[in-house]
Design a protein around this nucleic acid. Structure first.
Lengths: 158, 158
DNA sequence: TATTGTTATACTCTATAACTATA
DNA sequence: TATAGTTATAGAGTATAACAATA
């Protein structure tokens, strides 16, 4: 009988015949919720930043380079939660775009020191403005207080 | 001067010379926090489920097939947040392992109906047990109440 | 004409081993 | 001997177009 109802829903009026599935078994599954929430947030992020060709990892990298003088690639990789080799091409792209300088550290010539260029500092103004709009959108979705609570709870996971 | 302190930290006693970067500029960035939290949760998930060769998407698929009689691939794809073509190989693997049956729907022979096999139903017992341990670990990390709060806030993002 | 499932494909992200130059 | 950055590569996840069978 329940199958008949489901079948009736399937052949309903609307073109797309998908019924929403019963998600009860996943109500308690944090990883599933995290994946869907990240999908939503990243989609909004990517849309807003597409005009300046910045994705979430490049954004985080630029912010950390801005706030940390004489930042190294190994430090950046650890902070971002990515492997060093996967950072190389991304830094390359920032250097080629003239946003970041990569110079050998005179104190340890194995290491590269990353800094914003003058162009990069100018670029950050627009970057912060777009991110403010992105954050405002998410805060409207959640409420200002709950946004802060969510960030706090996510930080407890490590 | 601040650079001297950073340099001193870099050449400190410990083998790994990485200083922790100042993350202040990302305190407010939800996408970044979501990514790190998901990294942590998925790593724990993958470790615990590796013995039975189940990853997060396969887990969610099995749960939804278990709870939804006569589930279709298109419905599953929408619920899981993946594209239909990316589900095909995954369902293949569950069918090949004898956990799921995929049979044409007599009412609409374009569609496949997914159901747990007898083997699959037995498999779910162990699956639930491992997931309970995984969830217990996360609740210890967060606290029982805050775990529920976190799930609720993540659900508001859509 | 539209939809379900499928194939093929391309792009991104991620993880690891091995190389180089420095230390 | 160990570390910073790099190269090359393999695996997984993801998105899109096009096709066959069916509606």
């Amino acid at each position: 009988m329940a199958d008949d109802i489901a079948a009736a829903r399937r052949s309903g009026a609307s073109a797309s015949s998908e019924r929403p599935l019963d998600m009860a078994g996943l109500e308690n599954t944090l990883g599933f919720r995290l994946r869907l929430a990240q999908q939503y947030v990243f989609r909004d992020f990517v849309t807003r930043f597409s005009a300046i060709e910045i994705n979430p990892v490049l954004y985080s990298a630029l912010i950390l380079i801005e706030k940390n003088r004489r930042c190294r690639q190994s430090e950046l990789a650890m902070a971002l939660g990515v492997q060093q080799p996967n950072l190389v091409d991304r830094i390359d792209s920032l250097v080629q775009r003239g946003l970041v300088s990569r110079t050998p550290d005179p104190q340890d010539r194995r290491a590269n020191v990353l800094m914003l260029t003058a162009t990069g500092k100018g670029f950050m103004v627009g970057l912060h403005a777009i991110h403010d709009q992105h954050t405002a959108h998410l805060k409207r979705q959640l409420g200002e207080d709950e946004y802060a609570v969510l960030i706090g709870l996510l930080d407890k996971l490590r």
